[in-house]
Design a protein around this nucleic acid. Structure first.
Lengths: 211, 211
DNA sequence: TCTCCTGTTGATCACACGATCAACAATGCT
DNA sequence: AGCATTGTTGATCGTGTGATCAACAGGAGA
């Protein structure tokens, strides 16, 4: 019954081992949250002694914050990529709202929410959170300015509106975290709210039917 | 140098002692978060041995969740009270939005956010969170239905819209927790968004100037 | 084959947590 | 005054955390 063979881990290059550790950290965070990122937890997943994880990281706060950044930045990139495929700003805004509300990203949302509170005691993480929020805001702002240029929207302060939409989306996602059964038609309601904010014609921001 | 006199705590009635403990827990939570609610922390604040706190509580999860409920329910009551003083639904909605965004309640917001993640590992707390969210939603729903009745709003699903507004407010507050410097005119932007959702005339939901 | 470099181990430290409980002492009752 | 009730203590246990470091061993180069 050698459930845990307990054999010595094979010797690997620092780069490879470091990659294993960050990947294990990513998986743990997505499955059990940033709080579950402990030396022993990560070590166990990699199949390695706890000391080794410590050896590859200055401290755990750093691993937590870099793991957060990795996960969240990947999501931003992915969604931004989807946006570029859309024909116009209204479609982009609709896709943005629709994509972020479809509950397939609840694990990432959980990490966001956790990071907001963990940031109170982990300054490195707090800085990372602000940085990633800025990145998201820029994505929204780009869409809003886009719509302003084409005349689809009419916004005086695109940056502020972008912050607001971001906040709303975050809130609705956090809500879904707790009240998963919640409300349907979330996308429709939010679309109407967003239309009000960007000064778009009612009904102009409409989610494309899911394929 | 008797910084901590270390004298034995005076003997008090169970009711009185229990009240001291819950009050100390409330203060600690508001200042340092629900995570800071430890046996020793609460005991130190009351000026009592850690065992006594344990003696008055079935377990710490219960203290955490009841403290959360106490703090949040008080806020709901307070805001609901303010609402009743307003003449009509538009004013009520405006006050609601304005009050919840004015950053004087960031400590409570921090507790909300913390509770969302802590609820994943504390089922008692999770139940309490859902209960308190329901209470908030009812407040919003009442205002929306009110406006529907007077014709100020035009909403087909008041419950769903109420959930959405609640989520938005939560998100914007959580955002303010991290990006305090953030955006000004948050109330105005949100008012416009809410108008879009409730089908109110643009500009009808406007915050009363602060006295 | 031998040697050195370095990736790796795991025991260990100090600390914090929740929980438990025998012993203590203040209070009110008889 | 003596006693019984009960609020209170604080040491203790088991667990978990991050961090440290002497000792070990795999592998590449001489």
């Amino acid at each position: 019954m050698s459930s845990t063979p307990q054999k010595r881990a094979v010797r690997k290059s620092p780069a490879e081992r470091a990659a294993e550790i960050t990947e294990a950290a990513r998986e743990i965070a997505l499955e059990a949250g940033l709080t579950a990122l402990t030396l022993r937890n990560v070590a166990a997943r990699v199949g390695v002694a706890s000391g080794l994880v410590a050896h590859y990281q200055p401290n755990m706060d750093a691993l937590v914050s870099s793991t957060f950044a990795t996960i969240v930045a990947a999501e931003t990139q992915e969604v931004a990529g989807l946006l570029s495929l859309q024909p116009g700003p209204s479609e982009r805004l609709a896709l943005l709202v629709d994509t972020l509300l479809n509950n397939s990203r609840l694990d990432v949302t959980a990490i966001w929410v956790e990071a907001w509170t963990l940031g109170r005691r982990n300054e490195t993480l707090a800085a990372s959170v602000r940085e990633q929020m800025d990145a998201w805001q820029k994505v929204f702002q780009g869409v809003v300015e886009d719509g302003n240029a084409t005349g689809a929207f009419n916004v005086s302060d695109a940056a502020a509106v972008a912050w607001q939409i971001l906040g709303m989306v975050d809130g609705l996602n956090a809500q879904a975290l707790v009240r998963w059964d919640g409300v349907n038609d979330r996308g429709t309601h939010l679309a109407r709210a967003v239309e009000g904010m960007v000064g778009a014609a009612p009904g102009s921001v409409v989610a494309k039917p899911r394929l």
